[in-house]
């Protein structure tokens, strides 16, 4: 299965789910047009797109057109094996979920410092600068957001002195 066939199938299934989900929505009393119309239209469009993508239509247009990332570069090949690549790419997400699940208990200062230190190390920073960066970035961020902008960042185990 090529990546386009996979992508097309997923898109088509999302479209089908949307159309299916739309039929379960309640209508508006005395109206033919309700909350189900829009998702049904989009879902149908997605099914059509899914089929076209899976069939490879439009690939000829893609060939010489670059698919840029947000920074305008095409995705370069990676030197990591697939499992390692998945783990590396998943690390930032895992760190965000770590923040969500632990910040209330551990507190912002500790969690923020851990996130910065772990990610910097994973990206190849040397240990001492990574720890120093974490020790500086965490309180500084707390000062700007927690103190100046009054965002209620959780104090947890280590409440900041301000």
């Amino acid at each position: 299965m090529t990546s386009d066939q996979l992508a097309g199938t997923v898109i088509g299934l999302i479209g089908a789910a949307l159309v299916g989900g739309a039929t379960t929505l309640p209508g508006m009393p005395g109206q033919q047009i309700g909350p189900s119309v829009f998702p049904a239209v989009i879902g149908s469009g997605l099914i059509l797109c899914g089929i076209l993508i899976a069939l490879g239509v439009g690939q000829s247009l893609e060939d010489d057109a670059v698919t840029p990332n947000e920074d305008g570069t095409a995705a370069p090949p990676t030197k990591f094996s697939l499992p390692v690549a998945v783990m590396r790419a998943g690390l930032p997400l895992a760190l965000l979920i770590f923040y969500v699940t632990t910040v209330k208990v551990l507190g912002f200062l500790i969690v923020a410092a851990l996130i910065v230190a772990i990610l910097a190390l994973a990206l190849g920073a040397r240990p001492l600068p990574a720890v120093l960066l974490a020790a500086a970035a965490s309180p500084l961020t707390h000062f700007v957001f927690g103190k100046l902008l009054r965002v209620p960042l959780a104090p947890g185990l280590l409440p900041p002195p301000w």
Binding site: P92, L95, L96, Y99, A112, I115, V116, A117, L119, A120, L121, L123, G124, A125, P129, A130, L133, A134, A137, S138, T141, F145, L149, V151, P152, L153
Partner: peptide, 23 residues
Amino acid sequence: VPRAYIMAVVLLLCAVGTFASGN
């Protein structure tokens, strides 16, 4: 400035920034 430092701080700002948008 090494990218490792920048990206680490960016991820922290992602967390704090999105949290601040609705607490």
